[in-house]
Simulated assay, not measured.
Amino acid sequence: MSELGTALLIGTAIVVVVGVVPLLVSLCWPNHLPPDQRAAAITESLQVKGLDEDMQTHYWPAGWPHDAPERRLSIPEAHQAVQRHRSCEAADCPRKAAALRVLVQSGRVVLDPRRGY
């Protein structure tokens, strides 16, 4: 192969790599949408696949974060919240306070009156 043929082959390879590969990557890359359209695209994709139900908030773990729960905790959730928040003071952690209330009202826990909960 002559030097001219080699140069043409190398030039063609460079054009393909520099021109076509970035185009393919941009089409396949997940962030090709503007940020304000990504969430809608993901939601639509999940709905098409029938997976959107997995994103509902009632599947999120109990005890996260320290905020007060939006509804009354069940007894198992209250036990879990107290365990997860064992290092928190009930006066400083609304979730632990709500969990203790459930456990006290259900008779599962008797608080020590000397501790001043």
Rank of each mutant, 00 (worst) to 15 (best):
M1Q: 05
S2L: 08
G5I: 05
G5R: 14
T6Q: 15
T6W: 15
T6D: 07
T6H: 14
L8M: 11
L8K: 10
L9W: 05
L9Y: 01
L9S: 09
T12K: 06
T12H: 04
A13T: 05
A13P: 01
I14P: 01
V15R: 00
V16I: 13
V16T: 01
V17Q: 08
V18K: 14
G19N: 01
V20D: 00
V20M: 06
V21W: 06
V21I: 13
P22G: 04
P22E: 00
S26F: 09
S26C: 10
L27P: 04
L27W: 14
C28H: 08
C28V: 13
W29Y: 12
W29S: 13
N31C: 10
N31D: 15
N31Q: 14
L33I: 02
L33M: 06
P34F: 06
P34T: 12
D36P: 01
Q37L: 12
R38Q: 13
A40Q: 10
A40I: 01
I42P: 09
T43A: 14
E44P: 02
S45I: 01
L46P: 02
K49P: 07
K49I: 04
G50A: 06
G50Y: 07
L51E: 03
L51K: 12
D52T: 07
D52F: 05
E53R: 10
E53I: 07
M55C: 11
Q56Y: 03
Q56M: 11
Q56A: 14
Q56W: 09
T57G: 05
H58S: 11
H58L: 09
Y59Q: 05
Y59T: 10
W60D: 09
W60K: 11
W60G: 03
P61E: 04
P61C: 03
P61S: 06
P61H: 10
G63D: 02
G63R: 00
W64H: 12
W64T: 13
H66G: 01
D67R: 09
D67F: 09
E70S: 06
E70Q: 02
R71N: 03
R72L: 05
L73P: 00
L73V: 01
L73S: 00
S74K: 06
I75E: 11
I75Q: 09
I75S: 05
P76R: 03
P76H: 09
E77F: 03
E77R: 02
A78Q: 05
H79N: 13
H79V: 10
H79A: 08
Q80Y: 07
Q80T: 15
Q80A: 10
A81G: 01
Q83C: 11
R84Y: 13
R84P: 12
H85V: 05
S87E: 12
C88P: 05
C88M: 00
E89N: 14
A90V: 08
A90W: 04
A91L: 06
D92H: 14
C93N: 02
P94A: 03
P94H: 02
P94Y: 03
K96D: 03
A97N: 11
A98I: 01
A98Y: 01
R101C: 06
R101V: 12
V102E: 06
Q105K: 12
G107Q: 03
G107M: 02
R108D: 15
V109L: 04
V110L: 07
V110A: 12
D112T: 06
D112S: 02
P113Q: 00
P113H: 00
R115V: 14
R115A: 14
G116C: 03
Y117I: 15
Y117H: 15
